[in-house]
């Protein structure tokens, strides 16, 4: 499902910073993988490259058989929209939109019929147990609830890949555990490929496979 071959990422500033160095990685369809490593090891960079938010300096990334490097900006956007769902540490909800509007955002962007959008957004919120908060603004929700909205939004197109960057990093322990359970539950029910970047060893251990990054390289790849 996801294949990285010799992928490097270098940031050119006053001093060049190598964020990823010749990384090879294969993730099969339906796998649940955690990515761990110390700060600055390249975890988030790896996730951004897989998610098409950024492009590698060298190497090849294939998503569902398509070479990401060959895609134009808009094609990459379509790939993200249709195949990848993002869950961010800081939720990244639009504060001016209600929960249902936030979830409907990608559906609107694709130009689906309004009725279908409305019904799908409401179903997704029900799925993440937020049926009673449909018309609330993000400001009116707890951290856990916001992350649920973000997860519902990530599932808008039932994407085969779900990328989560520190999904519990901004939540208390109890709420973090709930969100983690939800992600596992969704993985089981929807069969998506899930990659979770985390600092939390509990979160990492809950996943059947853990990739460890250190100094921009893969230092370990353990399966349970």
């Amino acid at each position: 499902m996801i294949r990285l071959n010799g992928v490097s990422k270098q940031f050119d500033g006053k001093r060049k910073v190598v964020a990823l160095d010749s990384v090879d990685l294969d993730v099969a369809r339906g796998e649940l993988v955690s990515i761990v490593g110390p700060s600055g090891s390249g975890k988030s960079t790896l996730l951004n490259l897989i998610g098409g938010l950024d492009r590698p300096s060298s190497g090849k990334i294939e998503i569902d058989g398509r070479d990401v490097a060959s895609l134009s900006d808009d094609d990459l956007t379509r790939l993200r929209r249709d195949k990848i769902g993002f869950i961010f540490q800081f939720f990244n909800l639009l504060p001016s939109l209600t929960c249902v509007e936030n979830v409907a955002l990608p559906l609107h962007l694709k130009g689906l019929p309004r009725k279908e959008i409305e019904s799908r957004a409401r179903d997704l919120l029900e799925l993440v147990q937020l049926g009673t908060r449909m018309d609330h603004l993000p400001d009116e929700l707890s951290g856990g609830e916001r992350q649920r909205v973000a997860i519902a939004r990530a599932l808008a197109f039932n994407p085969p890949i779900l990328l989560a960057d520190e999904p519990t990093g901004n939540l208390d322990t109890h709420t973090g555990a709930e969100i983690l359970r939800l992600i596992h539950d969704l993985h089981d029910r929807l069969g998506a490929t899930v990659l979770i970047v985390t600092h939390d060893s509990g979160v990492a251990q809950s996943c059947p496979r853990t990739v460890t990054l250190r100094d921009a390289r893969i230092a370990g790849d353990a399966r349970r």
Partner: peptide
């Protein structure tokens, strides 16, 4: 910036 970034991340095309 972040708002527009989210929009692009979840599938907003340049034209949008």
């Amino acid at each position: 910036r972040r708002e527009l970034g989210v929009l692009r991340a979840v599938g907003g095309l340049r034209a949008q």
